[in-house]
Design a protein around this nucleic acid. Structure first.
Lengths: 203, 203
DNA sequence: TTTTATTTATAAACACTGTTCAGTAATTTT
DNA sequence: AAAATTACTGAACAGTGTTTATAAATAAAA
């Protein structure tokens, strides 16, 4: 019975069309301006049709959110080329900040916006995609400490500290809280701060 | 002509009523659920009346935002009791995180939400209230370095680093991105990370 | 004091939003 | 070909921020 499979495939294609259009609109105009009606118009379906493929607006953004985490992880994985754990850590920091500043809307969705995380909680889903990248950081830090390349400290405290720091800088920039300094200086300040922070942790 | 003054006073009183109600609703239900219609109902005026006292919804939140910064600054000022600059710095860190976790909605408005900052930019207003607290941090860091209590580093890099770090931890918690650890552990992790970070900066 | 002018408040509407549901059109199964 | 299932839509519901013409209240001028 290939007919059920075709139906399933068509359903997936429709989901894909919705997701693609939503992503595009989201990256162009942001969450609020990405309306169900707007998506429907672009794919030439009625607004109600979208609800046959997604439970609600947030479910669409949970899917985009999910893919963004895959993208981040694959980017961070580039740091694996670095054999030295501390060099890898530094590389990861740069890659993370790079990802954030190159994809501010995605970063926003992943680490700042309420909606996707609220939806995940309501559906009692776990955050495995997020975990994966965090654990990568954590394991790198473990290697650093085991190799004596980093000052010894509690592993979780270290992981939280590094994550908090990079998120702090990037989210302040993305949400426009860096007005103390002119925009031209931002990138330099971010890079220097990150470098300074990592240098403080080095053994 | 005391009549103009009375009118002005009445206008201010009305502004105050709107602001008070909006604050209350915002702290109870959040930004989205604080509607113009809702505020109007509580103060028993028509929705349109509010527009005679505030240009739009965001202007109300800019006012709340402004007062929140006064609150933060007066809280941070408690650290002035500490004569030793490094002890003052540590104290400030604790006070900042304390403020954030005790007033998550206000913190959100001040450092995370898009709306108030967008409104400030559109109106070409500057962020002096925010500056004030940041400069307090910056000057404390200068004192620390001048007194040789802190590792020498660029002053702005240090200020950005500390601010980014504390904002990072608090905003991750407020926006629910700390799911890697159970909620009971959060406070301890935040405090330990902050302490650890400051210890790394100590000379 | 009466008339004019000004300020203050409102009802109604505009253009949106996410979402639901009854009913229709298309497709598959019997 | 008829019945049953699936896919889809138009219209409506209950909201949102905001604008505007209109009415009411107040102040100033005659």
């Amino acid at each position: 019975m290939g007919i059920l499979e075709r139906k399933e495939r068509e359903k997936q294609e429709m989901r894909e069309r919705i997701l693609h259009t939503a992503s595009q609109m989201f990256l162009e105009e942001g969450y609020d301006k990405t309306s169900i009606r707007g998506i429907a118009e672009r794919i030439e379906y009625s607004p109600a049709a979208i609800y046959l493929y997604f439970k609600d607006k947030n479910e669409i953004f949970v899917a985009i959110h999910d893919r963004a985490f895959d993208l981040l992880f694959s980017k961070l994985a580039q740091a694996n080329l670095e054999a030295n754990p501390f060099a890898r850590l530094c590389h990861m920091g740069g890659l993370f900040v790079g990802f954030a500043l190159e994809n501010p809307e995605l970063y926003d969705l992943m680490f700042i916006m309420r909606e996707p995380m609220d939806a995940l909680c309501q559906r009692e889903m776990d955050w495995d995609k997020g975990f994966r990248s965090f654990n990568f950081l954590r394991e790198t830090l473990r290697e650093c400490m085991e190799a004596g390349l980093m000052k010894p400290m509690d592993l979780d405290v270290a992981a939280v500290s590094v994550f908090s720091f990079v998120h702090g800088v990037t989210s302040l920039i993305i949400r426009g809280r860096f007005k103390m300094y002119p925009a031209e200086q931002h990138q330099a300040l971010v890079e220097q701060s990150l470098q300074n922070m990592l240098e403080l942790m080095r053994a």
